[in-house]
Design a protein around this nucleic acid. Sequence first.
DNA 1: CGCGGGTTTGATGATGCTCAAGCCCGGTGG
DNA 2: CCACCGGGCTTGAGCATCATCAAACCCGCG
Lengths: 194, 194
Amino acid sequence: MYEQLIKYIEQNSAVHLNKDEIEIIYNNFIPKKFRRRQFLLQEGEVCKYVAFIVKGAMRQYSIDEKGKEHIVGLCIENWWAGDRESFTKETPSGYFIDAWENTDVLMISKNNLVNLAKSVPAAAELSKILDERQAIALLRRVNSAISYSADQRLAELEKTYPEFLPRFPQHIIASYLGMTKETLSRIRSTGLKK
Amino acid sequence: MYEQLIKYIEQNSAVHLNKDEIEIIYNNFIPKKFRRRQFLLQEGEVCKYVAFIVKGAMRQYSIDEKGKEHIVGLCIENWWAGDRESFTKETPSGYFIDAWENTDVLMISKNNLVNLAKSVPAAAELSKILDERQAIALLRRVNSAISYSADQRLAELEKTYPEFLPRFPQHIIASYLGMTKETLSRIRSTGLKK
DNA sequence: CGCGGGTTTGATGATGCTCAAGCCCGGTGG
DNA sequence: CCACCGGGCTTGAGCATCATCAAACCCGCG
């Protein structure tokens, strides 16, 4: 499990880790298994950990006053799951995060992450890169949400994250795109004809 | 102008700057005035600078195939304007950024920002904090866009950024919220009656 | 075989968009 | 001083898109 994380950090920060650093990483991340449907975080809780997904898939969503789920994020292998807002500000989260598949993760707490950033420069670097990427991806999503029609949003997703489509059922994808499963179904069937 | 930036950096990074650091900041930021409607960035260009807004207001938007503007971001005093994606990856931007009011900014190039981060720890710290905040704000906006109806989105904006409403005309606010000015107008009038 | 989750299809309706007209108001120029 | 203009805001009628609700289907699995 850890090898995958080490490799990920080295690749994404473009830094080679020495023995000591690897040791530190081993000591700061906690391995954990989530069964399908098990929660990493529930609304109202403070997000104590961010989780590196070694294998599996998770989703982050809110539930509105009518009880409907709205998927704000999906994550699979080599992504990070966690509510940044709750994690950094230590405030109650407005989101749920649960495992969509049985999932293996490596989790790190806030304190440990701060320590890690101090002692392993690559980790600090990586953290910054991830924040940047996150901000970039989210701005694209905002643009797509306010600018495009349902079928354009689907087309965008197919281009940006094709790996999501086989991985999650359509009602999840639909929610992620801000539409109903019925609409997604119709778009897909008519989309192919043209 | 610079005093405002210094103050901003000190407050947001919670670090006091020494003379040398202040000197470095003076040397790395370029002051510039934008007239109303003047572009900081146009679609297809690489975003060379991020701009700290000392006074005024700017907007960031895309233009779709029908020629309609979609506002992805608004910024006023003590905010930063710039397309993060284009700036960090040095790729052509998909957005326009222009001044909505006559605006005074302090701009910094990518190279200078990298240098600054090396020599002024507070700047590096700040940069990280801003990325975090950006990611947090954008996730909220995504959630709002995919979960809420037009009137709920307006309510959210009124709570989150009340300072925008008197500052920008309604058709700008409407676009920011992903609706038409007519819809916004109707929501506002019926909203008050209740 | 029956069950449950996922997907599709259809009918209906609400929400929000489009297009068009009119209004308000501050600014400009005759 | 008034006429006119432009930008912004409002209002209305008709329409497109998408949501809702309901039913049926499909298929892997116990």
